[in-house]
């Protein structure tokens, strides 16, 4: 694929992202017109919704989309496995366990503007990650396969604990836990946005700066080392950073599936496997895709709002299949 074409694709993705970020805050259950925002003394409810609900929500959607897409891309490269998702290592089930344990057994108290469910979810995510780390470290070396297997085991472990808690809880709480598991980008004010922001910025910068290293990882460990990469250190750093990014996003917005596995694949079909382009494409497409899906989720069956995970899969699935059919060459990982 020629370089120029890739640059054009990146440019298009950039423009689409900017467009989505500008237009989508106006779309929702009640559409807001641009005039109401700037005309003095006009529709104050519209401008209130825009500033306190829509804008933070769209920004949050963008950041979470970027995080899931980039981390999915990183995990797929490190494991050299196309089926890996940001949740493969059990981060999501750890977070879900934390959140659900709190919903079922705790009392809801606000803390720094964020309720304790969120803090509890984040603690759960960190706990799951440290378990995976510990088990991987206990074996000699730092094998990705051992990590993958440890992650799968821990995923099952927490999932069954969640089932147990749901079984023990009363009906209202089961319903609450169910809603949490579906994932939601709903937010009021900028607290969640500010919570995600540092992880979003630092993580994205770090991952995009690691494009050469990620390329090397695709060559397999032996060749990567022989080209001068300390693979053990790099893998640990990447897992650490991605775990924190995904941990925060899962704690605040729940488990939003599909984006993390499919967005990087769509980008591979668009610009190829070279991470010099793929990192940027995954960043832009992940954010754009999530913002659009969320706008659709708000709009499609008024006045109710569909779970975002339903939309990501319904829109992304057919699009991905269309790409698969129309592309001549599918690049293996």
């Amino acid at each position: 694929m020629r370089e120029k074409r890739k640059v054009i694709i990146l440019l298009v993705l950039f423009l689409l992202s900017v467009l989505a970020l500008i237009v989508c805050p106006f779309i929702g259950m009640s559409d807001i017109s641009i005039k109401t925002l700037f005309a003095p003394g006009a529709d104050t409810i519209g401008s209130f919704i825009y500033w306190n609900i829509r804008l933070p929500r769209v920004l949050l959607a963008f950041m979470v989309g970027v995080i899931l897409s980039l981390c999915g891309m990183v995990f797929q490269a490190l494991f050299r496995n196309p089926l890996t998702t940001p949740f493969t290592l059990g981060i999501s089930s750890g977070a879900a366990f934390g959140a659900i344990a709190f919903i079922v057994f705790g009392s809801e108290v606000a803390f720094l503007g964020l309720t304790k469910t969120y803090s509890s979810a984040f603690a759960g995510a960190l706990f799951a990650i440290s378990l995976v780390y510990m088990f991987t470290r206990m074996r000699s070396g730092f094998s990705t396969l051992a990590m993958l297997l440890a992650g799968v085991a821990i995923n099952f472990f927490f999932s069954s604990l969640i089932l147990l808690f749901q079984y023990l809880a009363d009906v209202t709480k089961v319903f609450q836990t169910h809603r949490w598991l579906m994932g939601s980008l709903a937010t009021f004010g900028f607290n969640k946005v500010i919570g995600v922001l540092p992880f979003f910025i630092l993580g994205s910068v770090f991952i995009i700066a690691s494009r050469n290293e990620l390329n090397l990882m695709l060559l397999g460990e032996d060749l990567a080392i022989s080209r001068g990469l300390n693979t053990t250190r790099f893998k640990m750093m990447m897992f650490g950073i991605c775990s924190l990014m995904v941990g925060v996003s899962v704690s605040l917005c729940g488990v939003i599936g599909f984006v993390g596995i499919i967005a990087p694949h769509i980008c591979r079909l668009l610009v190829g496997s070279d991470h010099r382009y793929l990192t940027k494409a995954s960043f832009l497409f992940g954010g754009f895709f999530m913002v659009v899906c969320d706008a659709v989720a708000r709009k499609i069956i008024p006045p109710s709002e569909l779970p975002i995970g339903v939309i990501t899969a319904l829109l992304g699935g057919p699009f991905f299949l269309w790409l698969l059919i129309t592309r001549k060459r599918i690049e293996d990982l």
Partner: peptide, 23 residues
């Protein structure tokens, strides 16, 4: 450091039938 070593020595592994997703 691994990087310093790579400037002196290069390595061609046994062909293992692995394909790389690059041009």
């Amino acid at each position: 450091s691994q990087r310093e070593l790579a400037r002196i020595i290069s390595y061609v592994p046994q062909a293992d039938g692995r394909s790389y997703p690059f041009e």
